[in-house]
Design a protein around this nucleic acid. Structure first.
Lengths: 248, 248
DNA sequence: TACATAACATACAGAAACGAACAAAAACAG
DNA sequence: CTGTTTTTGTTCGTTTCTGTATGTTATGTA
């Protein structure tokens, strides 16, 4: 059975039963415990289910606290993400006009921004809410609303970007390689990122070390087109590049 | 049984009975006293129930938590608003292209919409989230994000409305009089409403009875320009108008 | 007040679940 | 075919969860 096939099977099982244990999964799927655990981690990070101790729960069944922060802090590689987010937040300076991409790391950034005279534009609703609450001048882009990431995408969103010229932009990514650049699984999101990058002077990619050497379906930027903020324990093959900044 | 699953069960039991003792919980859930106590502590710290000596109480029956502005306003005239929202939801029909205004009553509407092939456009982020979750094709408008109402307003929002032609539009209001029409305190919001009304074929104003005879700062529509959905106990002076619909 | 009982918190140990590391197998590229 | 990369399975030390035991705190009653 193909890996992706197995992933789909797992998601279906979880949605069918509302929840499932790793042991139960082993009865349904012919794979080792360890593989299934790995799958659950991946599917959780992709947002297709919620991993809990003992197994996984469907997104609809799982209880989500209304506080976004709490939910983020339950996610994978959180220490790394915080370190990266904190550093990125330090790059924000007075009178900046900033594009803030959707994603957990960029969302974490907001907590650590100390500057005040900054204008933000974002396609992520949760980000907008947090930014406005902190008192920033905040603009959201128009477009088709996507439930999973709570962000807008599509032609309208891309057109909306045209009127802006950003001094800085902070982006998340699902994969980073020197050859394929920055990649993400969703084409619509990729197009928004790509366009936003075009309109941005200083482009920053926020990435924890797990994203390096990963390749997703669609490329939204070239490796040398942006500065990459990541953690100390990044793979050696990415060392020495001038645009790779290691924090912590 | 998964730990998280058990948590859900406990919360459901507590909400069902209003309150529950640890002993009662032991009859319903296959877990030791100690585990259930631990669960109650966790659920209390997560804010999902309120732990008391002997067991736990449901959140709503115990006392109101520190509600923000939005939630406080939500609780006012809630029965009336539900009645109005339910009726308005019934007006939604197949293939409609609907503008949904920000506001608590319009938000309530979403819960009662049964039709499925409907497209929504809104300037309220909470609405967009709910609509998309229910599977509707949902578009949000661009603009300056306002924290208080969690909606977008401004020139950009108004321009974004230009491209749409709505079959129906549902609007909230702060005041209704025959002479001054529909009024709201915020000029920016008023302008968005006004523009949206211009682009809408069938305009519905959702208003509980407390809004009648009230006048706010800015008028966004004339009294006879829309159909008003309100409750039976509306003031007599508004009776007899063909465009005033009393429900329940 | 003193006492009895129920509720509670803490400590501890066994069990289950987990992640990391490594080895084997499969898929892939040249 | 050979060497490399990716995926998978196994092992093992660590963490988390759960139940029992024990001592402490609250509550109600005399």
């Amino acid at each position: 059975m193909l890996g992706e096939e197995r992933h789909n099977t797992i998601v279906n099982l979880v949605e069918q039963y509302g929840s499932i244990t790793v042991q139960e999964l082993m009865n349904h799927v012919d794979a080792s415990e360890s593989t299934l655990r790995r799958d659950l981690n991946i599917l959780d990070s992709e947002g297709r289910l919620i991993k809990v101790h003992g197994g996984a729960m469907a997104k609809t069944t799982a209880y989500q606290t209304t506080d976004d922060d709490v939910n983020i802090r339950k996610s994978l590689n959180i220490e790394e993400k915080i370190a990266v987010a904190r550093y990125a937040a330090g790059l924000v300076s007075k009178n900046d006009i900033i594009f803030l991409d959707a994603g957990t790391t960029t969302e974490l950034m907001i907590d650590y921004i100390m500057e005040s005279d900054v204008m933000f534009v974002t396609n992520a609703m949760t980000h907008a809410k947090k930014l406005a609450q902190k008192g920033f001048e905040t603009y959201v882009l128009a477009g088709r609303f996507k439930s999973l990431t709570e962000s807008v995408v599509g032609e309208e969103t891309i057109m909306g970007l045209d009127k802006y010229n950003f001094t800085k932009g902070f982006f998340g990514t699902n994969g980073v390689t020197v050859k394929n650049g920055f990649t993400t699984p969703d084409i619509k999101e990729a197009l928004v990122k790509k366009k936003a990058i075009e309109k941005t002077k200083e482009v920053y990619i926020l990435s924890d070390s797990s994203k390096f050497s990963q390749i997703s379906a669609v490329t939204f930027g070239k490796f040398d087109e942006a500065r990459i903020i990541t953690c100390k324990n990044v793979d050696n093959s990415f060392r020495g590049y001038k645009n790779v900044m290691e924090v912590e």
